[in-house]
Deep mutational scan, measured.
Amino acid sequence: KRPMNAFIVWSRDQRRKMALENPRMRNSEISKQLGYQWKMLTEAEKWPFFQEAQKLQAMHREKYPNYK
């Protein structure tokens, strides 16, 4: 399994919040909304999620050194 990228790190919590706030919203619509919201974030707002993704990638490399 691949390490999470910055968008996935960010969207994990956002998806839960959105699903709780909009229980009738379909998963496909939630995904569209999340994509739009991510695009609207500034680079500074995205930065912590890129840092977290880099940490996860480093841990993944250490744990699975022969992963493609």
Rank of each mutant, 00 (worst) to 15 (best):
N22G: 04
E29Y: 00
G35S: 14
P48E: 10
W47D: 11
L20H: 07
M18S: 04
M59V: 13
R24Y: 12
N27F: 11
A44D: 10
I8V: 12
F50G: 07
A44H: 00
A58S: 10
S11I: 09
K17Q: 12
N27T: 09
V9I: 15
L56T: 05
W38D: 06
N27L: 08
M59S: 10
H60N: 11
L34Q: 00
P23T: 07
E45P: 00
T42S: 12
M59W: 11
K32P: 07
A58H: 15
L56V: 06
S28E: 14
F7Q: 03
A6P: 07
N22A: 00
S11W: 03
E45V: 01
Q54I: 05
P3A: 10
Q51A: 06
S31A: 07
L20T: 12
P48K: 07
W47I: 09
Y36W: 03
K63I: 12
L34Y: 03
Y64L: 13
P65E: 14
E21K: 06
M59P: 14
S28T: 04
R15W: 05
K17S: 02
G35F: 09
N22F: 04
W10Y: 07
A19H: 08
E62N: 10
M4C: 00
L41H: 03
K68S: 02
W47S: 09
S28I: 09
N66M: 14
P48S: 03
F7G: 09
M18I: 06
K68R: 04
M25W: 09
Y64P: 13
V9P: 00
M59K: 11
Q54K: 01
H60G: 12
P3D: 15
N5G: 10
A53G: 07
R2P: 12
L41F: 00
E21L: 09
I30G: 00
E62F: 05
Y67F: 07
I8F: 11
F50A: 06
K1M: 07
N22R: 02
L20S: 10
M25P: 01
G35I: 13
W10R: 02
Y36K: 14
K46P: 04
K55Q: 07
Y36N: 10
A53T: 13
S31M: 13
P23W: 05
K55A: 10
K1E: 11
K55C: 11
S11R: 00
R61V: 10
K46E: 02
K1T: 10
T42K: 04
A44G: 05
A6F: 02
K17C: 07
K17R: 07
P3H: 13
Q33D: 08
N66K: 15
A58R: 10
W10M: 04
M59N: 08
H60Q: 15
Q57P: 02
K46M: 01
I30T: 08
L34C: 01
N22C: 05
A19N: 09
R61M: 10
A6G: 08
L41A: 01
S11L: 02
F50T: 13
P3V: 08
K55G: 07
E21R: 03
Q51M: 09
F49W: 14
Y64F: 11
E29D: 15
L34S: 02
Y36I: 07
M4F: 02
Q33L: 11
A44F: 03
Q54R: 11
N22S: 03
E52K: 07
Q37S: 04
Y67V: 15
M18K: 03
D13Q: 05
M4S: 05
K46L: 01
K1L: 03
M18T: 08
W38E: 01
L34G: 05
K55Y: 08
R15Y: 15
G35V: 12
R26N: 10
E52F: 06
T42V: 04
Y36D: 15
R2C: 12
Q51L: 08
K63D: 14
E21W: 01
R26S: 15
A6E: 04
Q37K: 12
R61H: 11
M40H: 10
P3I: 09
E21I: 11
F49K: 00
A53W: 03
R24A: 10
G35W: 13
Y36S: 10
H60M: 02
W10P: 08
V9C: 05
N5Y: 04
L34R: 00
P48R: 02
I30D: 01
I8R: 03
K63W: 06
V9F: 12
T42N: 10
Q57Y: 08
Q33H: 08
R61G: 14
F7V: 00
A19T: 11
Q14S: 01
Q54P: 00
K17N: 11
R2K: 12
F7W: 01
Q51P: 02
E29R: 02
R61L: 13
Q33V: 12
L34D: 05
Q54D: 11
A19P: 03
G35R: 10
M18C: 06
W47P: 02
Q14A: 15
M25G: 01
N22K: 01
A58I: 06
K46G: 06
D13N: 14
S11N: 02
V9E: 07
N5R: 03
Q37V: 06
T42Q: 00
A44S: 10
H60P: 12
P3G: 09
M4V: 14
M4P: 09
E52I: 07
N27P: 12
R61K: 14
P48N: 06
W10T: 09
P23L: 03
P65M: 14
Q33W: 08
S28L: 03
E21A: 09
R2A: 07
L41K: 03
W38M: 03
Y64I: 14
P65S: 14
G35K: 10
E45L: 03
P48T: 00
K46W: 02
K17A: 00
W47C: 06
E52Q: 11
Q54W: 03
M25S: 07
Y36C: 10
Y64H: 15
Q33R: 09
Q37P: 01
E29C: 03
R24Q: 13
F49C: 11
Y67K: 13
Y67S: 13
R2M: 09
K17M: 06
P23S: 00
Q51I: 09
M18F: 06
M59G: 10
H60Y: 12
S31E: 15
M25L: 09
E62K: 07
K63S: 11
Q57I: 04
L56M: 13
W10F: 10
P3Q: 10
Q37C: 08
A6Y: 06
M18R: 01
E62S: 09
F7P: 01
W47T: 12
Q33P: 05
E21T: 04
R26A: 15
R15S: 07
E52W: 04
M59E: 14
E21D: 11
A58L: 08
E29V: 02
K17V: 08
L34V: 01
Y36A: 14
A6D: 03
L41G: 05
K63L: 12
P48D: 07
Q57R: 09
K55P: 07
R15E: 11
W47G: 10
D13C: 01
L20E: 15
M18W: 04
R2S: 10
E43S: 07
P3Y: 07
M25Q: 06
F50N: 10
I8L: 12
K32Q: 07
W38L: 01
V9A: 03
E29I: 12
S11M: 06
T42W: 02
L41V: 00
N5D: 15
W10V: 02
N66W: 07
N27G: 07
K63Y: 09
R61P: 13
P65N: 14
E29S: 05
A58W: 09
E52L: 04
Q14L: 07
R26Q: 13
A58E: 13
K63H: 13
Y67I: 13
R26P: 14
S31Q: 12
Q14D: 00
I8E: 15
R2L: 11
L56Q: 08
N5I: 07
Q14V: 09
A58T: 05
S31L: 14
A6I: 00
E21S: 10
P65G: 13
P3S: 13
Y67D: 12
E62A: 13
K68V: 12
E62W: 06
E45H: 07
E62Y: 13
Q14G: 00
F7N: 02
A44V: 06
E45Y: 10
K17F: 00
F49H: 00
A44I: 05
A58P: 05
E21P: 00
S31D: 15
R61W: 07
Q51T: 04
N27R: 02
M4W: 05
K55F: 04
V9M: 10
R61A: 11
D13S: 02
A44W: 02
Y67H: 15
Q51E: 12
K32S: 07
